[in-house]
Every structure is written in C-alpha cells, then in structure tokens.
C-alpha cells in the first residue's frame, strides 16, 4: 500500500506543478504576436508636436485608448500601467505608455496638463477624427460618443484593452483591464528580456 501511495504522489506531482502561478505559454496577457499589424500612426502628442510610431522606436510601448474626462476606467488603467512600469526599477525607462485620447474636442486643451499631472512618463496622443479612427481601425478597436447630458457632459465608449508593442513596433500582447499590476510587470520584464536578444 505505501508503494501505491508513492506512485500516486509521483503521478499527481505534474498536476501540482501545473497549478503554479506561471501562466500557459509564459504570458499573463494574450499573446497576439503576428496577429495584428505593426505599430503605425500619425498623431499629435500632448505638447502639440506631430508624431509617428517611429518616434518611439527602441522602447516597449503600451498603448491604451481613452479620454481625459473619463472618470473611472481610464485613470484606473493608466495608474495601473504606471505602477507596473515603476516596479521595473531601472528598466522602467525602456517602457513608454501611450495614452491615445479619442475625444479631441475636450482632450486637446487639457491633454498636456492631464498627462503631466498623471506621471511624467506618460505620452498623451490625440489628433483629428480621421487620424484617431485610422489608429482605432488598425487595432480593431472602436470608440463612440453618447448623447450629451443637460450639463453638456457626455460619455465616450472606448476599448478597455492595452496593446503592448515590441521595440521595433511588433504587436506582442493584449492585456485586458482586469489584469493585476504584478502580472503586467512580469510580462513587461519578459518583453524587455526578449527585446535585448
């Protein structure tokens, strides 16, 4: 009987190992390498300078679509990304967070202030409707404006996902808004490791 027990434990051991924190495939986010086209856009940054994806070459990029008047989802998501990047310590400067503001009517005036108040590492991007729609279409995300309330405030429906790009602009991961900060940091570490090869 003890022998049987030993065999049983031996047989169950792989199952126990399988329960460890490490996710399948090694990524916490969804691996979308090769699924979507490389990073490309023509937008204006929060300082008013026209920029393209080329300006951010060499760094891991996290791209998130939102708007400055967003009260819950965007601040939470952005602070999570900022925290996950800070956790990288001296590697933090290898990551750039791109916040694509899709409500230019309200965003344009306040984007600089919003971004600077948030965290100095954040890049705010916006543009004309055509420019924003082009980026959204490229990454198959959507945004739309709801009817204004009596006080003029209106909600913008937007995507919740964060797209991670490699240093050369290759699409790498889709991180959904439920992800834990520690898991985002772990994924960023792996992306940085793989980019130095």
């Amino acid at each position: 009987m003890p022998r049987f027990k030993r065999y049983l434990i031996l047989c169950l051991l792989p199952l126990l190992l399988g329960c460890s924190e490490e996710p399948p495939g090694g990524w916490y986010g969804h691996d979308i390498t090769g699924v979507m086209p490389d990073l490309e856009f023509n937008l204006v940054d929060h300082r008013g300078k026209a920029v393209t994806a080329e300006d951010y070459r060499g760094k891991i990029k996290l791209m998130f679509f939102g708007y400055t008047s967003c009260q819950h989802v965007c601040p939470v998501a952005l602070s999570k990304l900022a925290a996950a990047t800070r956790e990288l310590g001296d590697q933090a400067d290898q990551v750039e967070i791109l916040f694509v503001a899709v409500d230019p009517k309200r965003d344009k005036k306040v984007l600089d202030e919003y971004v600077t108040n948030f965290t100095p590492d954040l890049v705010g991007l916006t543009g004309t409707q055509e420019q924003l729609k082009a980026v959204a279409k490229r990454y198959r995300v959507a945004f739309s404006y709801e009817k204004p309330r009596d006080n003029g405030f209106y909600i913008v429906n937007h995507s919740g996902a964060v797209f991670a790009f490699g240093p050369q602009g290759k699409t790498r991961l889709l991180i959904d808004d439920q992800s834990k900060t520690a898991n985002i940091t772990a994924d960023l570490r792996r992306l940085i490791e793989q980019s130095s090869i």
């Binding site: 990454y139 198959r140 995300v141 959507a142 739309s144 995507s159 919740g160 996902a161 959904d176 808004d177």
Partner: peptide
C-alpha cells in the same frame, strides 16, 4: 471578453 477589450459601440 474581446468586445469589452476592443470597445462596444452600442450603449
């Protein structure tokens, strides 16, 4: 979950 990730356009 993909629709939440990529944005639902209808309210």
């Amino acid at each position: 979950g993909i629709y939440a990730a990529c944005g639902r356009i209808l309210p």
